[in-house]
Simulated assay, not measured.
Amino acid sequence: MSAYSVGHSGDERDIQGITMQILNGAWTFVRAHPTNTICTILLTVGIGVAGWNALYGQQNIHPAPFWGQTETQSQSRTADTATPPATVPPAPVQRSVQTQPVPATDNAPTSSISTSSAPQTAIPAEVTGNPTTFHIQKNLATLGIFKEKVDGYYGPKTATAIRAFEAQYGLESTGAVSEELLTKLENTVRSGQTAAPAQTSNADPLAQIAMSAADDSTASAPQSFSRDYVIKIQKGLYSLGFLQGAIDGVPGAQTERAIRQFEVFNNYRETGEITPELYDMLLAANASFE
């Protein structure tokens, strides 16, 4: 019994001696190589944390595990990866859209007078725009020639209606707004005369185009104006910010460019020319001639 105890104690002393040797050797290595020891410890800890996270720290099932899956895990994964049902979008609601007629404006270019059997144009009680242009449009509407809105603003449709009136009463076809024209219209309306209906609804379309081209060529014929009239036009363009050059009464390139910019801005036919209608258009745009 005592021999066993002595032998057993000897084994324990041998184990303790070996352990102490290992610890002393490790401590000696740590003291000799502190940097390598720290890096080794950090690498070991990192690998251990990553391994534990991969094996036990994932809430979802790994797509390619090292070990087999249980039946419950397999069913859960199948339920999670099931294709969701396709959502069918609702059928679009079809709405009926009623096309509204676009109201005609006097600024839109035209080449003929409307002769449809439309009701007479409503004439406003108060004067709007240029007074002379307003009364001319009013009288032309009373005679059934002008079918558009009476607003006092001169435009291609007003010029076309004026030419139609002048042609029906044997006057020179100019399409211009003037006091003489206003007086003639007032006398015609006061005397109870009515304008002859324009014979364009049943006419040959080629003839209508030819007549329109003739009117346009007559209206666009070059005219000479006095220096004072040109200065007045230049002042009007300058007051509206279109003319940047000198006001000298000479219709040069700068004046032509200003007229074109004014016509484009107000949706008029672009000509760049000084015409009798240009003064009325500037006046309708509230230009200053002083």
Rank of each mutant, 00 (worst) to 15 (best):
V264H: 15
L181Q: 04
L171D: 09
G252Q: 04
G272N: 05
F289E: 02
P197I: 08
L282F: 00
T160I: 03
S212H: 00
G192H: 02
R31Y: 06
G152Y: 02
D14R: 13
G68P: 08
M1W: 15
T183F: 07
S239H: 00
R31P: 09
S116N: 14
G245H: 06
A32C: 03
N139P: 01
P92D: 02
A164L: 10
V88C: 05
S114K: 10
E180K: 14
Q73D: 08
A159Y: 04
Q16W: 08
A54W: 14
V6A: 11
Q58T: 06
A167D: 05
P92L: 02
T121P: 07
G57I: 02
H135Q: 12
P124S: 02
A54N: 14
F242C: 13
R260P: 15
N24G: 13
I247G: 07
T275R: 03
P101W: 00
H135K: 12
T158Y: 02
T19V: 11
G68L: 12
I233K: 12
D14H: 10
V30Q: 10
F134C: 12
L282T: 00
E172L: 09
S112W: 10
A198P: 06
Q59K: 14
A86T: 11
T28M: 09
A213T: 00
I274K: 00
L206Q: 10
V6P: 07
I247Y: 12
Y153A: 15
I274P: 03
I15P: 06
I123R: 07
R260M: 14
L143K: 01
P222M: 05
E273W: 07
S288G: 05
T105W: 06
S76D: 09
N187K: 14
A195Q: 02
A54C: 09
M281S: 02
R260H: 11
A258M: 05
S111C: 05
D216M: 00
T194M: 12
Q21H: 08
S5T: 15
R227L: 11
Q223D: 01
M20G: 10
E71R: 14
A118G: 13
F66R: 10
M281I: 00
